[in-house]
Nucleic acid binder design. Structure first.
Length: 581
DNA sequence: GCGGATCAC
DNA sequence: TATGGTGATCCGC
């Protein structure tokens, strides 16, 4: 059996966190047990598709390589890497790698098992599993656990950084720079104290990584599990050598698929990113070479601040069940989703402008009849919806065109959200408080319309419950109108993403959060690394570049424009051919 | 804007 | 035996 397939069967998280060493043996057993099952067939098909994809990628690479001199390409990539090594996150004044912030990633060990233990002390000493099957879910169960146990861990962590960033139920990022300074502690001491603190209060153990940015801290927190800490040395060389041998899969965002794609072009470790820089640069479209180069350099964001409400993009609800094909039963499941989603939207204060239906086909159907298992169908509206009735109406209309189906999952999700708690969206209240007040003219027209519609809808509901049917009818009519709308107008908006800002690895300074923006200035800059190269020669034009940041960037941006590079490489290729003749 | 795919937790 | 749910992002069309 193909090695890649064995790996796939072992599950999506294989190789990510510290797993048992003899995983290959376990993999073999799992593969054996799965042989012949529908599940296995499905996985094999996906694996073969990926293998095909890899073949195409290699072919594409070789095609591109034909007209291009690899040496020159490598040099070009070097220039980009050099530029990136000087790019910086917070320290705009010096344009140096910012090593001034102590970033911690705290990761609770065996969180769900530990919480279960708190709730059911009887289980202590006995082996037990959490959840229905083998593993438990993250947020779904966390919700229950949160209610039952009232875990105080996040509260404790926040004492070390009030601007802590919670990442799920059992992880958090902290910037402990200020805490260390105020308490005259080293970062290790601080984290040790934090670990003891949490353990005393909850009997949970925490693993932590200390590093100059979030990505490195996260990787480090995995180094000494459980109940350990690992600090990276705060200097450039230590970071580079740490990255060099790090398996690429350890990088957040590199999953099973990307791992295999990268493997196919000779990249297994982050150090390989550099040795294969020419190919990565060539295949920039597929791999986001800039992101990978930053990863190789160990550069990432060190901004730690709580998630802001307006960063939320979608709210949804979905459920898995034994496969059903009876339309009535399917509708019942859909209704449940609509109900749950209404509850969530109400709780959190959101309404959405796009409703998406999701369903998963019964495995048998999926394999035999179709290639795909998961489908989504969306509908965009001109108004914002949040009630069960509205969600169900739209969900139904999306579902209807799909029937008949035999499915094992159904879900609804709303996107293009409006924050009903934002002051400007407090429709009814604002209307009541100052009925004659008109908003300023420079307010975006569309937004104004939405607010009015929202007010209208809310008012109508207050007016008369009996009128509900009439309202629904008018909404249905509006839906029809929108249908035509969507069908007749479909301008394809081109993606404005440029070659050098594909992924948001480096967060911009935000202006709406003065406290965090000021943070770096209140911290000593003595630790700032001074070993970055100060000058270099551009390999394309052989020009010696000034240290001055502006002119450097300007020059490099020019030399790195795809056209300039291709022109240069092809020219050098041609001239070398001519020399041979 | 839509739908599929990948990823994290 | 073949597994959950929530949410984000990217890409191609």
């Amino acid at each position: 059996m193909e090695e890649s397939l064995v790996k796939r069967l072992a599950g999506p998280s294989t190789g990510k966190a510290g797993l048992a060493k003899d995983q290959t043996e376990i993999n073999r057993i799992i593969a054996q047990a799965s042989k012949g099952s529908k599940f296995f067939e499905n996985e094999r098909r996906k694996d073969q598709e990926l293998t095909q994809r890899i073949h195409k990628l290699i072919k594409h690479r070789d095609e591109l390589l034909k007209g291009i001199d690899v040496g020159t390409l490598s040099h070009s990539a070097s220039v980009l890497i050099c530029k990136l090594s000087q790019s910086q996150i917070l320290n705009l004044e010096t344009s140096q790698r910012d090593l001034s912030q102590y970033i911690v990633h705290a990761d609770m060990d065996a969180f769900f098992a530990a919480v279960e233990l708190l709730d059911n002390p009887k289980l202590k000493g006995h082996p037990f599993g959490v959840g229905k099957g083998v593993l438990t879910t993250a947020s779904y169960d966390a919700r229950q656990y949160g209610v039952r146990s009232g875990m105080p861990v996040m509260g404790i962590l926040r004492q070390y950084d009030p601007e802590m960033l919670a990442a799920g139920a059992d992880e958090a990022f902290l910037n402990i720079t200020n805490y260390c300074k105020e308490h005259s502690m080293s970062p290790e001491e601080c984290v040790q104290k934090l670990q003891t603190h949490v353990h005393a209060a909850t009997s949970l153990t925490v693993s932590a990584g200390i590093a100059p940015n979030k990505m490195l801290a996260k990787i480090c927190s995995d180094k000494n599990k459980p109940n350990g800490q690992f600090q990276l040395l705060f200097n450039r060389d230590a970071i580079l050598s740490f990255m060099r041998d790090l398996p690429i899969r350890k990088i957040p965002g590199i999953g099973r698929v990307t791992e295999r794609l990268l493997d196919a072009i000779g990249i297994k470790t982050c150090g390989d990113i550099y040795s294969q820089r020419a190919v990565l640069f060539l295949l920039d479209k597929q791999f986001h070479s800039e992101s990978l180069f930053l990863t190789y350099l160990g550069i990432a964001s060190n901004v730690v601040q709580p998630m802001h409400r307006n960063e939320r993009k979608s709210v949804g609800s979905e459920r898995t069940f034994d496969p059903i094909n009876d339309p009535g039963l399917i509708l019942q499941r859909l209704e449940q989703c609509a109900q749950d989603l209404e509850g969530d939207l109400e709780d959190k204060g959101w309404a959405g402008q796009t409703v998406t239906l999701k369903y998963k086909l019964d495995t048998y159907q999926a394999i035999v009849i179709l290639r795909l298992t998961v489908f989504t169908r969306a509908k965009s509206l001109t108004r914002f919806v949040s009630t069960k009735k509205e969600l169900l109406t739209i969900g139904k209309s999306l579902l209807l065109t799909e029937l008949p189906l035999c499915i094992r999952l159904i879900g609804l999700r709303v996107t293009k959200l409006k924050d009903l708690r934002a002051p400007e969206n407090q429709g009814v209240k604002r209307l009541m408080a100052s009925p004659s007040k008109k908003p300023p003219q420079d307010v975006v027209q569309k937004e104004e319309t939405d607010v009015d519609l929202e007010e209208e809808r809310a008012m109508a509901e207050y007016e008369d419950e009996i009128d509900q049917e009439a309202i629904m009818a008018s909404q249905a009519a509006a839906d029809e109108a929108e249908n035509d709308d969507v069908d007749s107008t479909s301008p394809l908006t081109s993606n404005p993403i440029t070659a050098f800002s594909k992924r948001k690895l480096v967060e911009p300074l935000t202006h709406d959060n003065p406290s965090s923006a000021q943070k770096p200035t209140s911290v000593t800059r003595q630790v700032v690394d001074r070993t970055e190269p100060e000058t270099f020669t551009c390999p394309i034009c052989d020009k010696s570049l000034a240290v001055d940041n502006d002119s450097l960037n300007q020059h490099v941006d020019f030399c790195l424009s795809k056209d300039a590079i291709m022109a240069a490489t092809i020219m050098s290729n041609e001239s070398s051919k001519r020399r041979k003749l």
